[in-house]
C-alpha cells in the first residue's frame, strides 16, 4: 500500500530508498540524527523531489503537496502566531480541501484534552502544550495519510504514552495511516506495529516492530526495552494503584495510575529490572515476576538476557560480576523485580 522509490544525493551520503510496505496502521521510522529520516518524509510529502512515490498504488510524485492526500507535520512545525489556539485548529479545518476523514474540531479537542487551551495565545503555550495543539491541527487537515516528524519530543513520558495511545485509537477508528519519525525506540515500540530502521540513507531493517526492535538491540548494542501487554483487574483506592494482570498469565503488577492507559501496554526499561534465582521474601505487592531465562548473550561486556514471562518477553542486562556470582544458566527460573512502577 505504500511503495516508495527515491534517490537523492545529500551531503554525506545518498538517500537511496526502495520500499514496499503492505498494510500498516502506524509505521515507525527509526534512525540516528542525520540518517535521512526527515528528508524521507519531505520527499513523500512533496516538499522535495523524488523519483517515484506511490501511495495506495497511485503515483503521486508528479502532484504538488496539497494534492497528494498526505499531511506532513514538520519537526519545527510552528503554530501561526496571528491566530490563537482555536484559530490555529480551525485553520486547517477551514482551509484544507478534499477532506478524507470525518474528524471534527470538537472531537479532536475532546480527545486530546485541549479545552483549556483554546483561547490561549500561542506564545504562552509550553512546549508540550504546543506539540499537542500542533498534532490536533494536523489531524484536522482531514487526510488519511499523516506523517509526523518527532511529534511528541517535548512531552513527558506519561503524557507521551497517553497521546500515542490516542493516536493508535484514532488510527483504528478513522482508518488513518500514520508514519512517525523518531530517534526514540521506546516511543516507536510503544505505538507502532511496523518499523523501519534508516541508517545513512538506506533502510537496513524493516518489519514488525518487535522483530525490528530486537534486531536493533542486537546490532546497535543498545539497552533493550520490554513491551508488556496487560489487562486491568481493578483499582485499589486505598493504595492508589492499579492492579494489572499480565495477559495470558495470572501474575499481577501493581502500577501507578500515571503509567496506565487504554493501550494496555507497558514499556519497561532494563534499568528497572533486577534478577534473583530465589524468590525474594517479600509481600505479593512488590512486582516480582516469575520468568524463565531463554537466552543469554555477552555483548559489550554485559550479559543481555531474554526472559519468558508466560509467553511475553522481557529483556534485561546483567553485569558480568552479577552473572558470574550467581551462575545463571539458560533454562533457569529467575525472579524479576520491576521497580519504579508504584
Amino acid at each position: 500500500m505504500i511503495k516508495l522509490s527515491l534517490f537523492k544525493a545529500l551531503n554525506n551520503f545518498d538517500l537511496d530508498i526502495n520500499l514496499e510496505l503492505e498494510s500498516f496502521n502506524v509505521l515507525g521510522v527509526y534512525g540516528p540524527s542525520g540518517s535521512g529520516k526527515s528528508t524521507l518524509l519531505r520527499c513523500i510529502s512533496g516538499l522535495e523531489p523524488a523519483k517515484s512515490v506511490h501511495i495506495n498504488n497511485q503515483p503521486v510524485h508528479e502532484l504538488p503537496s496539497d494534492k497528494r492526500g498526505i499531511t506532513l507535520q514538520l519537526q519545527s512545525c510552528p503554530l501561526f502566531p496571528h491566530l490563537d489556539v482555536a484559530g490555529n485548529l480551525a485553520f486547517t479545518q477551514k482551509h484544507c480541501g478534499n477532506k478524507q476523514t470525518s474528524l471534527t474540531l470538537q472531537y479532536v479537542v475532546k480527545t486530546l484534552e485541549l479545552q483549556d487551551l483554546l483561547n490561549r495565545d500561542v506564545q504562552s503555550l509550553s512546549g508540550g502544550e504546543r506539540q499537542r495543539v500542533v498534532f490536533a491541527r494536523t489531524l484536522l487537515a482531514g487526510q488519511k495519510f499523516i506523517m509526523l516528524d518527532e511529534p511528541f519530543s517535548a512531552l513527558d513520558w506519561s503524557l507521551r504514552f497517553k497521546t500515542l495511545t490516542k493516536l493508535n485509537e484514532l488510527a483504528v477508528k478513522f482508518n488513518i495511516k500514520f508514519i512517525i519519525v523518531s530517534h526514540s525506540l521506546k516511543e516507536l515500540l510503544f505505538c507502532c506495529d511496523t518499523l523501519i530502521q534508516l541508517d545513512k540513507g538506506k533502510v537496513i531493517n524493516q518489519g514488525a516492530s518487535a522483530h525490528v526492535a530486537k534486531a536493533i538491540y542486537a546490532n546497535d548494542r543498545q539497552t533493550p526495552l520490554s513491551l508488556i501487554n496487560y489487562d486491568v483487574v481493578k483499582f485499589d483506592e486505598d493504595y492508589g494503584l492499579y492492579q494489572l494482570q499480565l495477559q495470558q498469565s495470572e501474575q499481577p503488577l501493581f502500577v501507578l495510575p500515571a503509567l496506565v492507559d487504554s493501550s494496555n501496554k507497558l514499556i519497561i526499561e532494563s534499568e528497572q529490572m533486577s534478577l534473583s534465582a530465589l524468590k525474594p521474601e517479600q509481600t505479593t505487592h512488590s512486582n516480582v515476576l516469575k520468568s524463565v531465562l531463554t537466552q543469554a548473550e555477552l555483548i559489550n561486556n554485559k550479559w543481555q538476557l531474554t526472559l519468558n514471562v508466560d509467553g511475553q518477553t522481557l529483556y534485561c542486562l546483567a553485569s558480568r560480576r552479577v552473572w558470574d556470582k550467581n551462575d545463571f544458566k539458560v533454562g533457569d527460573v529467575l525472579y524479576t523485580t520491576i521497580s519504579n512502577l508504584e
Binding site: R42, S45, G46, L47, S65, D66, R68, I70, T71, L72, Q73, L74, S76, C77, P78, F80, P81, H82, F91, T92, H95, C96, G97, R137, T138, A141, Q143
Partner: peptide
C-alpha cells in the same frame, strides 16, 4: 522560512496560503 513550508506540508493550496497566512503574517 518559518511558516510557509509548514503550511505547504499541511496541504494548503498556494492561494489559501497567500490569503490566509502570508498576508496576515505580513501585517
Amino acid at each position: 522560512q518559518t511558516y510557509n513550508e509548514a503550511a505547504i506540508a499541511l496541504g494548503l493550496s498556494p492561494f489559501k496560503r497567500f490569503v490566509h497566512l502570508i498576508i496576515p503574517l505580513l501585517k
